[in-house]
Design a protein around this nucleic acid. Sequence first.
DNA 1: GTCTAGACGTAATGTTATAACGTCTTGATC
DNA 2: GATCAAGACGTTATAACATTACGTCTAGAC
Lengths: 145, 145
Amino acid sequence: MADSHAGHDHVWADDLTRNQELVLGTLAHATAPLSAYDILDRLRDEGLRAPLQVYRALDKLTERGLAHRLESLNAFVCCADAHCHGDGGSTAFAICDRCGKVEEFAEPAIDSKLRSWSKASGFVPARMTIEIRGLCKECSASRGP
Amino acid sequence: MADSHAGHDHVWADDLTRNQELVLGTLAHATAPLSAYDILDRLRDEGLRAPLQVYRALDKLTERGLAHRLESLNAFVCCADAHCHGDGGSTAFAICDRCGKVEEFAEPAIDSKLRSWSKASGFVPARMTIEIRGLCKECSASRGP
DNA sequence: GTCTAGACGTAATGTTATAACGTCTTGATC
DNA sequence: GATCAAGACGTTATAACATTACGTCTAGAC
Ligand SMILES: [Zn+2]
Ligand SMILES: [Zn+2]
Ligand SMILES: [Zn+2]
Ligand SMILES: [Zn+2]
């Protein structure tokens, strides 16, 4: 095969490897966060056989901000915010415990509060995790007032 | 043994079980977060043999706010803030990637921002995770200007 | 005394993540 | 064009984290 990894249906970046594209594509089509093993299962037909192939791709994708790891779930989502990639600001996630839907949002005021606490404490931040678990609008509506 | 589990050196609550006291005591004496298996290893001499004994105690302790789970580390710490226990407000953690030290702090403004985002979005929050990874004051000082 | 709820002990298993090794491709350098 | 270095890749094995399932024991309610 001369032309590598053709057949994808969206381009996120021009220099992703085949495995990275496969993993990102899988995340993009998912409606809920996927664990690395979920992703692996969905890519068996594409030839992936080992967890490490997925973890390596996820490492690169999260480094570049094209995907995010949800720490409270040990799972991954495709970045939903074009402005988010690599702007250094922290991103927050609201995760529905019932349907799995994830909303990615930025609250600059939160980021700024965390930074000012850090500055005051002498702590040098490298990475921030902000996750809310609960019920999304639809799921809470279907459970009573 | 008539009098159950004597010999501890601090009382956090009057109704902890023996396993819960052992686990909380272990966390209280640690200088960095401990995984469930770390805790288990330190309690072999007290008779604990299985992970579940530790996980069950941790579940109860975290429910009551006497210990906290650090999601980005899959590890646990003793609660460091007497005001924190069960006040419903979210607690934030700054975790040093070099020495492991954890600082627990409350930023009501952050909590309030997250709640107002939730209200505006129709999301019903149940639990919030706020963790900053980086270098503590001492560790960043010993690494250059 | 009987019943029940909850903590406990144990074994087995499931899930998430990394270590260690060698190969292959690509692109720079000589 | 040969050599070299960096980095993606494939594979196996293993480590680290967490839960399911089942039976026992005790304390308190009735
Ligand atoms: Zn994003
Ligand atoms: Zn939902
Ligand atoms: Zn606390
Ligand atoms: Zn430190």
